[in-house]
């Protein structure tokens, strides 16, 4: 084997670190969009590595839907404290109270789509000119067309048919006042890469990702966790199951899978053998073929 050689995870890490440093060099007020999910945790970990021994020079933005897993919130606060990083919280409840967003009604109601309003308001309020996220191109077909540096107009909208070409490792972050960028340093990572990286780097993640006993209901081919926001339909009932979550979003839309994987090694093995995509358990993607593209055009993450 060649002496001067990086394995695939090292090369992906070097690429992501390069991009995070470009963000800090090219923008005035960049921030990391932090959801408490594994991808934004990995991005935060990469930011720690990119600027060490300085602390992470970007604040974290959390869009709080109010429909959270308790575990996610505890994890978020511990991470913020440990890294001595600024936390900006945008509250969907505030947007609703101010009349900027309207609550969905009905049995599958969720606050997923409302996040867009709060996210754009938060970006504007704090004059954020680059919002760094953990989206990956392998996740979803609209995301497969994303650039690393993805331009948003003054309304926060994405124009997928008119994206700037992105060549070599040259990233064009030039923009007019009021516009901003979304930046995706782990675009080229797959779900498998993320899990292997978490294992290799021994990164702390919320306990929700590991198999645990939980009160759940079976709906739309997935196990939805118990929360005060879910109303049972006729014939449905809460049961205790050993489950884990492959992705984390709002408690109302994140379904779990039956699993015994209670260590990182077992999760990696389980992901390697999985026959369906991780977003298969996400209610927000099941609202039509181009649900993700339609939300992204509006400014969704």
């Amino acid at each position: 084997m060649h002496k001067y050689y990086l394995n695939h995870l090292q090369e992906l890490e070097a690429e992501a670190i390069f991009i995070l440093r470009e963000v800090v060099a090219q923008f005035d007020r960049p921030a990391i969009l932090f959801s408490g999910g594994k991808d934004s945790i990995v991005v935060t970990h990469l930011a720690k590595k990119a600027f060490w021994p300085a602390r992470i020079p970007l604040p974290l933005i959390h869009i709080d839907t109010g429909h959270n897993f308790t575990e996610t919130m505890v994890f978020r606060d511990a991470l913020v404290k440990e890294n001595n990083v600024q936390l900006i919280v945008g509250s969907v409840q505030d947007s609703i109270n101010e009349g900027r967003a309207a609550e969905e009604t009905g049995i599958n109601a969720s606050r997923n789509a409302l996040q867009t309003v709060t996210l754009l308001d938060t970006i504007e309020k704090h004059k954020i000119d680059a919002a760094v996220g953990g989206a990956r191109r392998d996740e979803e077909k609209a995301r497969a067309k994303e650039r690393f540096f993805s331009h948003r107009d003054e309304f926060g909208q994405w124009d997928p048919k008119n994206q700037r070409p992105e060549l070599w490792n040259i990233f064009n972050g030039r923009k007019n006042m009021g516009e901003h960028f979304r930046v995706f340093p782990i675009s080229n990572w797959t779900e498998m890469d993320v899990w292997n990286y978490i294992l290799t780097e021994n990164i702390d993640i919320p306990s929700l990702y590991f198999a645990h006993m939980r009160k759940v209901v079976y709906r739309d081919n997935t196990w939805l966790p118990y929360s005060e926001f879910i109303t049972l339909r006729e014939g449905e009932q809460w049961v205790d199951k050993k489950i884990r979550f492959r992705t984390l979003g709002d408690i109302t839309i994140t379904g779990g899978i039956e699993s015994d994987a209670d260590t990182l090694e077992k999760i990696v093995a389980e992901v390697a053998a999985a026959r369906s995509t991780e977003r298969g358990n996400r209610g927000d993607d099941k609202r039509g073929e181009t649900a993700m593209e339609d939300r992204k055009k509006q400014g969704y993450f």
């Binding site: 979803e140 067309k145 181009t290 593209e293």
Partner: peptide, 16 residues
């Protein structure tokens, strides 16, 4: 992946 691509049955952009 894009709506326009699926409607027109063409590929508009580089996909990874």
């Amino acid at each position: 992946g894009l709506r326009a691509e699926r409607e027109q049955g063409i590929t508009i952009d580089v996909a990874y």
